[in-house]
Write a protein that binds this DNA or RNA. Structure first.
Ligand code: MN
Ligand code: MN
Ligand code: ZN
Ligand code: ZN
Lengths: 150, 150
DNA sequence: TAATGTTTTGCAACGATGTTGCAAATTCAA
DNA sequence: TTGAATTTGCAACATCGTTGCAAAACATTA
């Protein structure tokens, strides 16, 4: 329990609880654990990675529903991948209920398979042919990440 | 049958047969029909669209294997989508066995769901953080296409 | 803290998607 | 035309994702 002597690093549980409260979600074990996972790894996670990490703690269906809820609330966003698997990552910008603003580039390492949100690289403006109207841009770069690079 | 009097539009069947031959693939009914479909629609197709179009002519598995083969040979390429469904489209550039060069932007219409290859819009160069090496870039824009636009 | 209404979870069952092994059919080349 | 090689269809299976419903957990109020 945090006291007046250890206030420097805020209690993780509390922070997670705040995120859930702010989004009007009940604080449950599965939601807390899954949010924790995202915070701890920092990178993108797939449903199956989460399933592996949490073992038999929760049902598959609960994980699906938790991820759906988080996406709807703007807590996490999905990442399209070249091999068409579904990835999720924490939203760092001010995303809200049904209104995402994750217009950043994603990077997938071909070697270690880690997916990074390049939060400070925005997706470029594309000049489309006449008559086409753009509402969303997804840009995914793949290659070798800085950890795997020699 | 084309004669000397109708040489302007080359026989489609012949062209398709040539594509298959050039790639050392036997000319079979399913391959011919599926290639025809891509040529006729012009846009991207999913496995299920092809299954619907061809009805019960071929087995599901045959369609999967045909698409795989075409991708390997560089006849078609896959398109990553935001909702993580798999789309395929004809390669128009000089793609060869295991070596694709489809570095163009894709556009998906939110309304009619048509997916376009914007062949003359190249994917932009992205300046990555130190240590990251880029080998591939996928850029998908979604919005309203010129047909659905007013 | 205890009771109560609301939300979330686990389970079972299901549909869609994609893969593999193998025998039969088709294609190709001699 | 024949025989070898390739391709196909079928069956069986694995993975992924969804839904309905009863039980459990959670939030709220007293
Ligand atoms: Mn991201
Ligand atoms: Mn394309
Ligand atoms: Zn890596
Ligand atoms: Zn359209």
């Amino acid at each position: 329990m945090p006291t007046a002597f250890l206030p420097i690093r805020p209690d993780m549980k509390a922070t997670i609880a705040e995120i859930l409260k702010r989004n009007q979600l009940s604080i449950t074990e599965s939601r807390t654990k899954i949010l924790e996972l995202f915070q701890d790894t920092g990178n993108a996670l797939s449903h199956s990675m989460i399933e592996q990490e949490t073992g038999k703690e929760f049902d598959r269906v609960t994980i699906y529903r938790t991820l759906q809820t988080f996406v709807e609330k703007g807590i996490i966003h999905t990442i399209p991948t070249a091999d068409n698997s579904v990835l999720y990552a924490l939203c760092k910008e001010a995303c809200t209920q049904g209104h995402h603003h994750d217009n950043h580039v994603h990077f997938i390492c071909d070697q270690c398979n880690t997916t990074y949100c390049l939060d400070n690289i925005s997706t470029p403006d594309i000049k489309l042919p006449k008559g086409f109207i753009q509402t969303q841009t997804d840009l995914v770069v793949s290659g070798i990440c800085k950890n795997c690079n020699s």
